Simulated assay, not measured.
Amino acid sequence: MGRFGDWLLLLIGAGFAVWLLIRRFDRWLHEPPGARLRRLAQNGGVIPDDTVALLQENGYEVLSGKHRVPLGVKVDDGPVQGTRLYFDYLVSKEDKYYLVKLERARQPMDWTASGLRERLLAYALLFPDCEGIIVADPKDKWMRTVRFQVEDDEA
């Protein structure tokens, strides 16, 4: 009788685990676009400063600030090495989301297509629901929006 009870408990546990997996997959499948960004916006606080004022003057609603996205990098069969990707603010305007990176004197932005690709493409790929990436310099009071698009290579 003990073996029957063990099998019964095992089947109940396995059925529960399968039910949880199906439920989680269904939630992910039916998650509306931008839900990841909305969750991200709820997690970060905003400290008023010159950048927030500049963004608000240009019609953006600052949702959150100072985010760190943890990433793992594995080379061949080596151990996973941790690294992080940072962005400064998440803003919205007309129901569209934008990531904000600040221009820094020690790492000036290379405004060529290849320079922008090297520096900002990772953000566009990690957050495909964003309309673009805003590069802002609160000291000189300017902002530029960068958008990436895949082009056909037919000539």
Results as ranks from 00 to 15, higher is better:
2 G>P: 07
3 R>H: 15
8 L>S: 13
9 L>R: 06
10 L>N: 08
11 L>R: 05
14 A>Y: 01
17 A>W: 00
18 V>M: 03
19 W>C: 13
20 L>R: 14
20 L>T: 13
22 I>T: 13
22 I>L: 09
24 R>Q: 15
25 F>M: 07
26 D>E: 10
27 R>F: 05
30 H>T: 14
31 E>R: 09
31 E>T: 13
34 G>M: 11
36 R>A: 04
38 R>V: 03
39 R>A: 06
44 G>V: 08
46 V>I: 10
51 T>M: 07
53 A>L: 09
54 L>N: 10
55 L>F: 03
55 L>W: 00
55 L>P: 00
57 E>A: 15
57 E>Y: 06
58 N>F: 02
59 G>D: 04
61 E>P: 00
63 L>P: 01
65 G>L: 01
68 R>E: 14
70 P>Y: 06
70 P>D: 03
72 G>P: 00
72 G>R: 02
73 V>R: 15
73 V>H: 15
74 K>N: 04
77 D>N: 12
78 G>T: 12
82 G>E: 14
82 G>I: 11
82 G>C: 08
83 T>L: 11
84 R>E: 12
85 L>H: 09
86 Y>H: 15
87 F>H: 13
90 L>A: 02
93 K>H: 10
95 D>V: 00
97 Y>P: 04
98 Y>M: 05
102 L>V: 09
102 L>T: 06
110 D>S: 12
111 W>A: 06
112 T>H: 05
114 S>F: 03
114 S>M: 10
118 E>P: 00
119 R>T: 15
121 L>K: 08
124 A>E: 06
125 L>E: 11
130 C>P: 05
130 C>H: 03
133 I>S: 11
136 A>N: 08
137 D>T: 06
140 D>E: 14
145 T>P: 01
146 V>P: 00
148 F>Y: 07
149 Q>G: 00
150 V>A: 11
154 E>N: 11
154 E>D: 10
